[in-house]
């Protein structure tokens, strides 16, 4: 699998503020890549450089093997972007919006009709095409916005917090469609999100803090490196839980034991099997990874 994005030693400053500082990472073709960071961490600046809307101060950025400063016209045809806020025209109908955007990529006539039909099925747009965009719900609008972003069949889809503000059901629907696109069309997805459970499903995660990488790896690697495991013990007494010798916390129906890693859990189970009548070992969460890597907690975009 080749790399669709290759960033080497990227620098970008705004006056005295260094927004991106020696950033290097690669995104493999076909993968779901999650880019995490607080507001101001440098995510949007990096995306703007990738999209050619900002010029870098230093380093190298290649998309599909093409340098952004040399082949932006080609890159634009291979990239689709879903921005944080829907950037379609609210007073036009869904169909008018999509036909306009398709024409900007030279997709007109029968080619447009065929693509519209595909998108109509993929995003359940049947009842929406003749409706004014401004009258759609947030979830419907988001579906149309994603359809707009992939109307030209890009190889890379950049999603800038695509599910912020959506209800859980719509978030699931949006993710189902994105997953299906990845599987069926080999689309690479570059995601920024504040929802840690979305990042947990990614193939690779980069956590950005103050313009630099604070941590990177697969979700499993990150959890193993930055977050301990939990051992949930049920049907035991307080003495038995505390007797394991690790930090423990009473929860509704049992105790949560904090362990440094899975090997430690295995060792405990072997050494005191009589305590482990009903239990489960749970990997640390991406929230814990983010907290450990940056010292900051990310919940819906707010620093805690």
């Amino acid at each position: 699998m080749g790399n669709i994005i290759e960033i080497e030693h990227l620098y970008k400053s705004f006056g005295e503020v260094r927004a991106v500082n020696d950033l290097s990472f690669r995104v493999k073709e076909g993968e779901l890549f999650a880019f995490l960071g607080l507001n101001g961490a440098g995510k949007s600046t990096t995306i703007s450089v990738i999209c050619g809307q900002l010029k870098k101060d230093g380093g190298s950025v290649r998309v599909g093997g093409v340098k952004v400063e040399e082949g932006m016209d080609r890159i634009r045809r291979e990239v689709g972007v879903v921005f944080q806020n829907c950037c379609l025209d609210k007073v036009l109908t869904v169909e008018e919006n999509l036909s306009c955007r398709a024409a900007l990529y030279g997709i007109t006539g029968d080619a447009y009709k065929k693509r519209l039909e595909e998108l109509r099925e993929m995003f359940e747009l049947s009842g929406l095409l003749d409706r004014t965009l401004g009258k759609l719900s947030g979830g419907e609008r988001r579906r149309v916005d994603i359809a707009r972003a992939i109307i030209h069949r890009p190889r890379l889809l950049i999603l800038d917090e695509p599910t912020t503000g959506l209800d859980p059901q719509t978030r699931r629907l949006v993710w189902d469609r994105i997953e299906s696109l990845r599987k069926n069309e080999g689309l690479t997805v570059f995601l920024t999100t504040h929802y840690m459970e979305e990042a947990a499903d990614a193939d690779y995660v980069v956590i950005l803090d103050s313009g630099s990488i604070a941590a990177e790896g697969t979700p499993l690697e990150l959890k193993n490196t930055y977050a301990g495991d939990y051992l949930m013990l049920y049907g035991v007494s307080k003495e038995e839980a505390e007797g394991l010798g690790y930090k423990c916390e009473q929860v509704r129906q049992g105790y949560r034991i904090y362990l440094p890693d899975t090997a430690c859990a295995t060792e405990l189970i072997r050494s005191k099997p009589e305590v482990f009548r009903d239990y489960e070992v749970i990997k640390g969460k991406m929230d814990d990874v983010f907290l450990a890597a940056t010292g900051k907690q990310l919940t819906g975009g707010e620093v805690k």
């Binding site: 999209c51 634009r76 972007v81 806020n85 950037c87 955007r101 900007l104």
Partner: peptide, 13 residues
């Protein structure tokens, strides 16, 4: 003002 320009400038136009 509403950011629609970002989408238009991302197209090959």
């Amino acid at each position: 003002a509403n950011g629609n320009i970002n989408d238009l400038t991302m197209s090959p136009v």
